[in-house]
């Protein structure tokens, strides 16, 4: 039973903030949960919110001035969690909650989003979604630097009807075992297995990690493609055009 939703693999590839990024660069607002005017829980990236438990929301507003924050009522959060339970997987569930947390009913706008999207997801879910097919797959392989042991990391994303349907390491156990199988064969195999057109990309691990820390690394992506450090499998001019438009015109 292969997992359709492999959260670990997803995080290894598509998380911006979880590891290693300096707090100041990407910290979203602190989030607190209140019941009857007192804080009962909270979360603040890089900070411990424990000491604020039991504080009145008024006092919190006065004393927690060093960082933007939002206080939500427990009943609202519980309602949003129940809403999120209807989603298929943790990525959609977190996104559902994120949207709720970002829309402040009091009219106060948060100056920063609750979380930043990974650049790849940002691209796929933005303007590109109008030109990309509604069903497709993406295969990413991160090559380790020379001399570093271990198999390359792989991720397989399947989008159907514009929604992220699954994310996991590709299961290649059904693929014919030959020493000469190339990346093209692998992408073709995945297309046949999941019945959607697949686009593959083979990228050096270090490049990917550097790009993942940035909101708009598209120029670096193009440079890596030009320098043949990274490659698209198969190479599609249309996709290269989209990358170029994003890198130079922000589209």
């Amino acid at each position: 039973m292969q997992h359709r939703f492999d959260w670990r693999v997803y995080q290894e590839f598509l998380t911006v903030g979880a590891r290693g990024v300096p707090l100041a660069e990407n910290a979203g607002p602190a989030l607190f949960v209140a019941r009857e005017g007192a804080v009962i829980s909270g979360y603040s990236s890089g900070e411990d919110t424990d000491e604020w438990l039991g504080t009145s929301t008024e006092e919190l507003r006065l004393r927690y001035a060093h960082r933007e924050h939002r206080v939500v009522e427990e009943a609202d959060l519980q309602k949003w969690i129940r809403e999120a339970l209807a989603k298929d997987h943790v990525v959609d569930q977190a996104e559902c909650l994120r949207r709720r947390l970002g829309a402040d009913p009091g009219g106060t706008q948060l100056s920063r989003p609750v979380a930043y999207h990974h650049f790849l997801l940002d691209g796929l879910q933005g303007w590109w979604s109008r030109v990309l097919p509604s069903n497709y797959g993406i295969y990413l392989r991160l090559e380790r630097p020379r001399g570093v042991e271990g198999a390359p990391r792989e991720l397989c994303l399947v989008v159907r009807g514009g929604r992220l349907e699954s994310f996991h390491s590709p299961d290649l156990s059904g693929m014919a075992r030959t020493d000469t199988r190339g990346d093209e064969d692998l992408v073709r195999y995945l297309s046949e297995k999941y019945l959607v057109p697949f686009q593959g990309a083979v990228i050096p691990e270090r490049d990917w990690e550097d790009w993942s820390k940035l909101a708009e690394p598209w120029r670096l992506v193009l440079m890596a493609l030009r320098a043949r450090r990274a490659r698209l499998v198969p190479f599609r001019w249309g996709l290269a055009g989209l990358l170029g438009a994003r890198a130079y015109f922000g589209l």
Partner: peptide, 9 residues
């Protein structure tokens, strides 16, 4: 859940 939404630690 807030941590998941904030994509943090």
């Amino acid at each position: 859940v807030l941590q998941a939404a904030a994509d943090g630690r």
